[in-house]
Amino acid sequence: MEITEKDVAHTTSKLRFDDIKKGKVLSVKWEPKLNYAWDNGPALGRYLAELKNGRIIAKKCDKCHRTMLPPRMFCELCWRPTGRWVYVRDTGIVNTWVVSYVDWKAGRLNIEGGVRPFTPAIIEIDGTSKGMGILHLLDEVDPWKISRGMKVKAVWKPVKERIGAITDIKYFKPVK
């Protein structure tokens, strides 16, 4: 695999790309092949299946009475199996959020060129216990007008495009 000029450009190495290109230094590039097929198990499995149906499902602990999202087969605090499955709403409030000028690879977004900053948020979903919810994205809102406690609602992908993944929800948008 070739090392490109771009690979070298942003490193702190004193190497110049030319050194590599002309073979003045040995270069090795190895892209690991890391493929996994994780078994989701009954809790996460049903959570994802319900997202495909356009619904959010949680699971309750009968001891501490928390309604937990994402759902799990056991309560990690009470150390006992969880009980009932319960559907919760696809609305909630913003717990915390960020206005990000970089993407997930720390690459700079062209904000000056009109690209909207990336606005990930922790959303406490209505019907779950305090502090439980979904990490997702906010959109259809001015990034600088997002506020703590703001009410939001899921914007779902069209039924045909859903695959049983967290991205079946496109993003959350503000509601009155």
Partner: peptide
Amino acid sequence: TTPDVSYRE
């Protein structure tokens, strides 16, 4: 294989 459970269970 253990397709029925995740590492958690």
